[in-house]
Design a protein around this nucleic acid. Structure first.
Lengths: 255, 255
DNA sequence: TTGTACATCTCGGGT
DNA sequence: ACCCGAGGTGTACAA
């Protein structure tokens, strides 16, 4: 018999295994509260001594271990990893393996305070506005936001050494490279723009580079000026967005 | 009376509020399984239609909303945010506010399947090895890994337009800039190195730039060669690391 | 699979 | 507070 949600406080070893097996078989999200140790080896290598953590295992293989602070998990495994429950010396270990790159995460459950699962149904996707892509859209709709006579020609245009956000021409026919940033632009952003401008100047003459962002860091401003590049202030737009959701019913097939 | 863990499946409105209040007052980690809607506005703006999600609220104000896939939360609030429980038209809303930048996250709990909390105690910190900082350490211990006669002088050295990973001299007395990457280096890494080399060449002559990494992307190799910069293959070392943990007992004060 | 760049990036360290 | 760069970054998208 299948339940959408199950939770057991202070479960026995047998209950832990039974509930985890059940959760894995029905592709539920698993949540554990546990005193545990964690070992990781792969791109790097880490060890985390015993402590209380929240463990989440998602049906796509994502594996998260959260301490009581910070937004980021202290250890994790990305989607596509394969989890297994291992019994070793009467201890329960959770092991998650990823291929390519080869990475292993092991959690030694010393004491489990709660084991729970949730057969989540979710057909909605996030509708987000205020991205860099929307800045580009805005500029194509209203090129004079950059300057009078600006004509955008390409979006996400691959060139010699990278991909230019927006490529266009100014009223004098100069080639113009725009590098867009949705937030305050830093040295990285200037270097990026410089790389594109340099690459294009090898093939064309009269190439201008404009960094388009809400603001600039002090260092970015200095470097931008030294390199003879320009800055145009522009905020990412917050638009009304249609919500995206996967089709749950098949009503588009109805008569 | 205080419990370390509490969990209630299919809680009533009153139970939800009671348990959440309790959890907040004892600084526990809260976990909810809920069918909910989510609204966010701040640096960007987003909306997420109804669906089943796992919600985590940490004592430092971190707020995570996870769908059943992906490592990343679909919505979140960083540490330092302030959460409150709001009753609106008999609906329970969770609201989290961050100042600077001003950001608001709102979760409308349509149906709550589970509410739980965990008074987590954790004095351990992650001990990780294989970082870029350890590559730098390795090079200072064994400079010939770069080349015969190389002498490292500075680590994390601030220069005109940025901070150089390692600055040194080669056997001929040339200034050498190292840019270290713990993983395959890309165009971005080359741009970074180029920026440092350019800045130093304004003040010194005979400046070499070496990108030190396990490998290079095709594009990075091309750009590196075009710019007359060099590459040295080096993997980040995986060392034995002492585990870090905050002192729980005060035994260092003992006789 | 690899390459490229964004991200409500987060996080830590320095000034 | 701002600035700067690393990260086991993750994620999407294109070639």
């Amino acid at each position: 018999m299948s339940m959408k949600v199950e939770a057991k406080v202070e479960p026995s070893h047998e209950e832990i295994i039974e509930i985890l097996d059940k959760a894995l078989s029905v592709e539920a999200i698993i949540t554990l509260f546990a005193y545990c140790r964690v070992f990781y080896e792969g791109r790097a290598k880490s060890e985390l001594g015993p402590g209380d953590r929240v463990i989440i295992i998602k049906p796509d293989g994502s594996f998260l271990i959260h301490q009581k602070n910070k937004r980021e998990p202290v250890n994790w495994q990305p989607p596509g990893s394969v989890v297994s429950i291992v019994l070793e010396d009467g201890k329960i270990m959770l092991r998650s393996v990823r291929r390519k790159p080869k990475e292993t995460l092991e959690v030694e459950l010393i004491k489990t305070y709660l084991v729970s699962y949730f057969q989540a149904e979710d057909y909605e996707e996030l509708a987000l506005t205020g991205s860099e892509a929307e800045m580009a859209g805005l500029i194509f709709e209203n090129p004079s936001l950059i300057e009078e006579g600006f004509k955008p020609l390409f979006k996400e245009k691959p060139i010699k050494h990278g991909i230019v956000d927006v490529l266009g021409r100014d009223k004098d026919g100069n080639l113009v490279v725009l590098e867009l940033k949705r937030r305050r632009a830093d040295l990285h952003a200037v270097s990026q723009l410089k790389r594109y401008v340099d690459a294009l100047r090898e093939e064309y003459k009269n190439v201008r580079g404009i960094l388009v962002a809400p603001s600039l860091t002090a260092g970015a401003k200095k470097l931008l000026e030294k390199e003879g590049l320009e800055f145009k202030k522009l905020n990412p737009p917050k638009r009304e967005k249609k919500k995206k959701g996967k089709q749950k019913t098949l009503d588009f097939l109805s008569p």
